[in-house]
């Protein structure tokens, strides 16, 4: 309990929030680099995944990428990039590591989403004379939406977690509060930093869930379809399984 009251005291001390090493600055660093990297990794991963899914090739790559991403330690990649030639280039090691670890969940989920889009619907659309791009944009993409958003959510959570680890390799962000606390043997600061990081991660997850609900192209319609399909549980099970594709860091 000591640690909790200590952490509370740390959090309610205004001095800890101000300045270059204060919480506000660290939070801004964290959110900024996470947002930039999420956009960058979407720009890289989604076109590739949509295209591969549309032509139906590269499935082994898309699935194995997730397995590889899971086996490679985030911390090791961050340190390797920091010691490498890019180490002196400011935030670049962090940016590259964040993008690298966000690509697998995005790519795998988007690919599977397109691939597993209801074949009957796709065939019907083709029969109606839709062209390739029309098919992708108006049939496959809306059908892939749930998995696409699962991937986006995993990627966002992954990025926030990895950005925390960047502090261990000398980067900025909220993780710095924790590592500085460990460095000073200041348990109160360690716990306070951990609470802040956990709150940020949960908030990001919450925002992504809200975005998912708001942007759903089949809002209201999907549920009816699910009930009508009978063994509609399958769809739900798939959504849950896909969460595990992410991988914590």
């Amino acid at each position: 309990m000591d640690a909790l009251t200590g952490a509370w005291q740390w959090l309610t001390t205004a001095a800890n929030w101000a300045g270059d090493k204060g919480v506000w600055h660290r939070l801004a660093e964290h959110v900024q680099i996470s947002a930039v990297c999420l956009v960058l990794s979407c720009l890289i991963a989604l076109p590739v995944a949509l295209w591969l899914g549309h032509i139906g090739k590269g499935g082994a790559l898309a699935v194995n990428l997730s397995n590889i991403g899971r086996a490679v330690p985030t911390f090791a990649v961050l340190v390797l990039l920091t010691l490498g030639p890019l180490g002196s280039q400011g935030e670049w090691p962090t940016v590259i590591a964040l993008v690298l670890f966000a690509i697998p969940p995005l790519l795998t989920n988007a690919y599977l989403g397109i691939r597993e889009a209801d074949r009957d619907a796709v065939e019907a659309a083709r029969g109606m004379g839709m062209s390739g791009p029309q098919l992708l944009l108006r049939v496959e993409l809306p059908l892939a939406y749930p998995l696409l958003m699962t991937g986006l959510r995993s990627a966002a959570v992954q990025i926030v977690a990895t950005a925390t680890l960047a502090a261990m390799a000398g980067g900025g962000g909220l993780g710095r509060v924790i590592t500085a606390g460990f460095g000073n043997y200041d348990t109160a600061q360690v716990v306070a930093g951990a609470v802040l990081v956990a709150a940020l991660a949960l908030a990001v997850e919450g925002v992504m869930v809200a975005v998912d609900r708001l942007c759903d192209p089949m809002r209201g319609r999907r549920r009816a379809a699910r009930i009508g399909r009978g063994p509609g549980e399958r769809r739900g099970a798939r959504d849950d399984d896909a969460v595990a594709i992410g991988g914590a860091a």
């Binding site: 261990m168 993780g175 360690v190 716990v191 990081v197 956990a198 991660a201 949960l202 997850e205």
Partner: peptide, 22 residues
């Protein structure tokens, strides 16, 4: 159980270890 474990999974590992240290 599923909800709680998902929440735990969302917490970054550095924060998890830091929270368990005290």
């Amino acid at each position: 159980v599923l909800g709680l474990t998902t929440v735990l999974y969302t917490i970054p590992s550095l924060a998890m270890f830091a929270l368990l240290t005290p």
